[in-house]
Design a protein around this nucleic acid. Structure first.
Lengths: 171, 171
DNA sequence: CAGATCGTTTGTGTAGCGCCAACCATTTAT
DNA sequence: ATAAATGGTTGGCGCTACACAAACGATCTG
């Protein structure tokens, strides 16, 4: 915005017009924490924990994903995915089938029960969400949801291709 | 600017929008995790960790807050706030002064060095943010930031006043 | 004075998760 | 065909982030 103006004027001592470079990372962290705390209590009766919800939500959108695909989008170690899926499969919310083309793979998908439980959980989450997002109006919450959905549905971005993207941190 | 998504057509007596109750909680969790993972690496050289950033960010907005005020907005236990502030104070990023009106209290505030370090950190975070929010355009990121800021700046919401807000979870 | 409150220290416990190593079953390369 | 790589699984180790409790000093308040 104002950056273009800086080149004219001799700029005597004007020591850098404060970058106003506020990042959303910390806010995201903060908000997610508050949400997670609230969610735990309303989710407990359903036998689920926040991270199960995350997994189920991801599974709804990318059904038939492999376990390491899941590990990569969830950004957690493969060994932990096993435990996570064990929980979910034990309750019949998720299904592991061997992939036909590569029988080493497990194709993970949401069961009908899983989809149902997810909907119930989302319904229960409305309470938590109301408390945490209380400062936002309904329209804003929709916008937020949409932005989050778009942001998370992006590719996991492998480091290989990530290397050339950004010029460099010059700031 | 404002998303006109969901313009709510007439929807004739639809038997309750059924399902479509997607909550942003899990997405928030997911995105925050990815951001935090990325942040750790770029923050490490600055001697900070994600939670320090959250604290500093909160402190910039609510300067001169008490420690339990901080505990309440951060939603972490008071004893842990002590350790967190010890870290920050040890590096001179934060200052604890006794409150004049109530000398039991510590008034916490960002030092000049703290504000500077915070800006540097935010600058460094741009890299992580680019990777994580790659699917969003610049305008969308701004919108996201604004929503997050509004959402987090809301009062901690004591349970007393929270009781009457929502009718009940009928879903 | 008594009791409550803020911050601090210390200690204990737990959950989440990375990481390493070993092990099948299977696929791919030689 | 034999060897090497890969996907999943199990088990174990260890670290970090916390919550929670107890006890203490300093201080405020009834």
């Amino acid at each position: 915005m104002f950056r273009a103006l800086r080149k004219l004027g001799h700029m005597p001592a004007l020591p850098v017009e404060e970058s106003e470079q506020h990042r959303s990372g910390p806010l995201l962290d903060h908000l997610a924490r508050r949400m997670r705390l609230r969610s735990e209590s309303v989710l407990a009766p359903l036998g689920l924990r926040p991270r199960h919800l995350v997994a189920l939500t991801v599974l709804r959108d990318s059904d038939g994903i492999s376990q390491q695909g899941l590990a990569s989008t969830l950004q957690i170690d493969g060994t932990n995915v096993v435990g996570l899926l064990n929980d979910l499969e034990a309750e019949g919310l998720v299904e592991r089938r061997r992939s036909p083309e590569d029988r080493r793979r497990h194709v993970v998908s949401l069961t009908a029960a899983g989809a149902k439980r997810l909907r119930e959980a989302e319904c229960a989450l409305a309470v938590a969400e109301d408390e945490v997002l209380g400062a936002l109006g309904p329209g804003e919450r929709d916008t937020l949801y949409e932005l989050l959905r778009r942001a998370t549905s992006g590719r996991p971005m492998s480091c290989v291709e990530a290397s050339g993207d950004e010029p460099d941190p010059i700031c």
